[in-house]
């Protein structure tokens, strides 16, 4: 039975010229990179929004979104709920966790006479608690994420793309465009930008910055919830440890894109994804993370403010 499979759909390599095949492979890899990168972008936007309004890195972001996503995954596998509902569950759970984080880790330390980095430590504490809770509730093991609704591939000439990659890329890009327009155009979006630039001035101009912060933390976490589901779709499985490892990718992008710069985070994520994948494709997979981080270091030598950060903000 595997035998027919073996010879099945074997595309004839002779019909494409050598150069055509190399180009096709390149584009295939670029698309792989963009798919991975779009999930990095969404994660990074979460860090970036919070960094913007609070000037602080939320070290619990990774744990928050993976917690939301695994909860949603369980509603799918245990209760048989559909994927669209899983998106909502993930967003809701992540948002609530974000809100609790704001209440417990950020707010009590705001405007108090504590060291500048105190909230960083309190978010690490929050992350540890979530990690332990996840191990207790879900176990540390990886759980399969059903990708059946998006099985199959689409062919564009020599390039084949998994349908699920299309979905991921589509959802992530759409979300980022909507988010970008929302931040640029709406009143609350302007309030977030104003608070990011200078919280005291924003407050004096009548913006209720405390509420803006709560909203931003919840928004960032909710976006993480969507990213978590997309990660599940992309990799076919979720596990608690992904919060930490992918969180680091998001952090890298936060810095790469220019601290607190939302479009920078979006583009930075895509760039990191493509660079990573190309470094595996045309270099040594052993050095995947090293290459990515080396690139970030080089960028900092050339542009200390990050790729898209402006001089004054950095």
């Amino acid at each position: 039975m595997r035998k027919d499979c073996l010879r099945f759909a074997k595309y004839d390599s002779d019909t494409h010229g050598g150069r055509g095949r190399i180009a096709a492979m390149f584009w295939q890899q670029v698309i792989n990179g963009l798919t991975v990168g779009s999930t990095y972008s969404l994660i990074a936007v979460g860090y970036t929004l919070i960094f913007g309004v609070l000037g602080m890195i939320n070290m619990a972001h990774g744990q928050i979104f993976i917690f939301g996503a695994i909860t949603a995954l369980l509603t799918m596998t245990e209760l048989g709920w559909p994927l669209w509902l899983a998106f909502i569950i993930s967003v809701v759970v992540s948002s609530i966790l974000g809100w609790i984080l704001e209440l417990t880790a950020f707010k009590p330390l705001r405007k108090k006479d504590v060291p500048h980095l105190a909230p960083l430590i309190s978010t690490i504490g929050f992350a540890t608690v979530l990690d332990d809770l996840m191990i207790k509730l879900f176990g540390a093991d990886s759980r399969a994420f059903p990708t059946e609704p998006f099985g199959g591939r689409v062919t564009f000439g020599p390039v084949q793309i998994r349908v699920v990659d299309f979905v991921i890329l589509g959802v992530a890009l759409l979300l980022m465009i909507v988010l970008h327009l929302w931040i640029e155009r709406t009143k609350l979006g302007k309030a977030i930008r104003a608070t990011s630039e200078n919280i005291d001035t924003a407050e004096i101009l009548g913006i209720p910055t405390d509420r803006v912060i709560v909203f931003t933390v919840v928004l960032a976490s909710g976006l993480g919830g969507i990213a978590g589901i997309l990660l599940g779709l992309a990799y076919g499985a979720l596990m608690p440890s992904m919060g930490l490892t992918l969180g680091f990718k998001g952090l890298a992008v936060l810095v790469l894109g220019g601290l607190g710069n939302v479009p920078g985070a979006m583009l930075g994520g895509l760039i990191l994804g493509v660079v990573e994948v190309l470094s595996v494709a045309y270099g040594q997979s052993t050095y995947r993370d090293a290459v990515a981080f080396l690139m970030i270091m080089i960028i900092f030598f050339i542009r200390p403010q990050g790729l898209f950060g402006s001089q004054e903000k950095a």
Binding site: K187, K190, A194, E197, A202, S310, E312
Partner: peptide, 16 residues
């Protein structure tokens, strides 16, 4: 808000 436009600076003033 140096990174925002002149117009946006004024619009933010109308928040309340």
């Amino acid at each position: 808000f140096k990174e925002l436009s002149v117009l946006e600076n004024v619009m933010i003033g109308r928040h309340t």
